[in-house]
Write a protein that binds this DNA or RNA. Structure first.
Lengths: 124, 124
DNA sequence: CGCCATCTACTATAATAATAGTAGTAGATA
DNA sequence: TATCTACTACTATTATTATAGTAGATGGCG
């Protein structure tokens, strides 16, 4: 499943992923930027149209919940970026991450471990 | 410097990065998708307006060249994605890459080596 | 030297994103 | 029960993206 989110949509999905099913007001409160109530509602509608969220009636209000898992969104976005600027190569992408000068030796060691673990649990 | 490219813009920049300075026709030929000449021109204009490319007159034609290096675009895009879906964490991002099931053991080992090398040449 | 092909400049259009206002409804409350 | 207020539905606006057409200029060729 391909999950394509705009920046703003991602921030809204984040609220749903973090808090779970939420009403429009709750999402609005959960956002860092102060957006109009109707703006938040519009975004949720768009997301619903894309089938990324659904809602249940709850009294007069609607309670929205994420239909797509965060990981799916992450995976899609990574794949898209890799295609767009890294010739579809995960390795090239990783190389860019690890050659980032902001990373400390500690960061690198933790990354090392992440790959280590993965290599060990990998079946082939 | 922040380099934000749309998908299509990225494919055009790719041609410039690969072939070096090119005329509109050359870019058009270098693109996988067959776009109208004027479409390619329009995209180059947009990129010029964003200061990502510049051009020199060459006879009646213009020869466009990239002003931003590919690495800068990659870095910007990675940072943006990390912010958007990975809470700004490079590690989280990396974790997602390496847990991708499409990666073979070989891929992982090469990644391992990339980090190894980086760790060794790292000053702190 | 006149015409044609090639180029740029300008304009256009449909789609999507980001943001929000207005109208109308229905539950809660005084 | 009448009113207020929170909530959704619908509409609107501005910006950007993606794509391309038309007009006008110009250089090369026959």
């Amino acid at each position: 499943m391909d999950v394509v989110l705009t920046d703003r949509e991602a921030t809204v999905m984040d609220v749903l992923w973090e808090r779970g099913a939420s009403t429009v007001s709750e999402v609005q409160e959960g956002l860092r930027d102060r957006l109009a109530y109707t703006t938040v509602l519009t975004i949720l509608r768009t997301l619903e149209q894309k089938n990324y969220v659904s809602h249940l009636e709850e009294g007069r209000a609607h309670r929205y919940s994420a239909l797509v898992p965060r990981d799916a969104a992450r995976k899609s976005a990574l794949a898209a970026l890799s295609e767009k600027l890294f010739k579809g190569s995960a390795e090239l992408l990783l190389t860019h991450i690890v050659t980032d000068n902001k990373l400390t030796r500690d960061d690198l060691e933790r990354m090392q471990k992440i790959i280590d673990d993965r290599t060990r649990t990998r079946r082939r």
